[in-house]
């Protein structure tokens, strides 16, 4: 099968400061459809820089990037925006939901642009509602972000990333701000989506979290230093059961608990 992402020897040099920063120094990578990749590495190793280029938010200084066979170097600003809208889903670091905008409206956002821009508001609403159901938040559709917990906000952000049925879902530290239990919940959502065929690339610092993925990449000083499949994969559902048992034992919760 043709890889959805093909990058060949890409570099990123930031010229903004006094000294140019060579953040990514020649990464070559193929990602096949259905992969689930964790991108790891020390702080400053270039993970976010690489993710931004994968997400077509930033252009490489050097090298080629084919997304689903399309050379993104040949696209202008608007074509790039349409590409992001149609083929990619983002889960940004720190949620990046619109404040004073309900969960449902946040999820609808990508459908207001791109190829859906002619869709009726009912169709948009229905699809957004469906995505909220996938992440288990349909009952909170009319809540504002400041009325949601961190994990719930993260799940709204995931639903927003899904709404245009992307080929690749990109998530930069999706569990960065979450406690371990909520992190497992989020990884559970990712695993379910991946099983349905969505390609996922996520950044994480935590080895525990990386083990929910299928393939781990480690970046150091802008170079991929390790690229290996995950051997003993953690499964979110099992981990959740363990957590529940432990909680019941410690009587941290009383009776059935809410999501």
């Amino acid at each position: 099968m043709q890889p959805v992402v093909q990058i060949k020897d890409i570099h990123k040099i930031y010229e903004s400061g006094e000294v140019p920063v060579h953040a990514v120094r020649g990464v070559t990578l193929d990602i096949a459809p259905g992969e689930f990749i964790a991108l790891m590495g020390a702080s400053g190793s270039g993970k976010s820089t690489l993710m931004n280029m994968l997400g077509c938010l930033d252009r490489p200084t050097k090298g080629t990037y084919l997304l689903d066979g399309i050379d993104i170097d040949k696209l202008d600003r608007n074509e790039l925006a349409d590409l992001r809208n149609q083929k990619l889903g983002f889960v940004f670091q720190g949620f990046n939901l619109l404040a004073r905008t309900t969960a449902l409206e946040n999820v609808e956002l990508p459908m207001l642009y791109g190829r859906h821009r002619r869709a009726s508001s009912d169709q948009i609403r229905e699809r957004a509602m469906h995505c909220l159901e996938i992440v288990g938040l349909a009952n909170r559709f009319d809540h504002f972000p400041n009325q949601l917990s961190g994990g719930q906000q993260q799940r709204v952000a995931i639903a927003r990333g899904l709404v245009n049925s992307p080929q690749v879902l990109l998530a930069d530290e999706p569990t960065g701000n979450l406690d371990s239990k909520t992190s497992v919940e989020v990884m559970g959502v990712f695993q379910k989506l991946n099983e349905q065929g969505i390609t996922i690339v996520m950044v994480t610092h935590e080895f525990d979290i990386a083990r929910y993925c299928r393939r781990n990449l480690i970046l150091r000083d802008g170079i991929v230093v390790r690229d290996e499949p995950v051997k003993e994969r953690s499964m979110a559902e099992k981990e959740m059961d363990k957590v529940r048992l432990a909680e019941a034992a410690a009587k941290l919760t009383s009776g059935a608990h809410a999501a």
Binding site: G55, L57, D82, L98, Y113, N164
Partner: peptide, 11 residues
């Protein structure tokens, strides 16, 4: 956010 998820400058 709007630009990242596909809004054009015109939008």
């Amino acid at each position: 956010i709007r630009l990242a998820i596909g809004a054009h400058g015109k939008d």
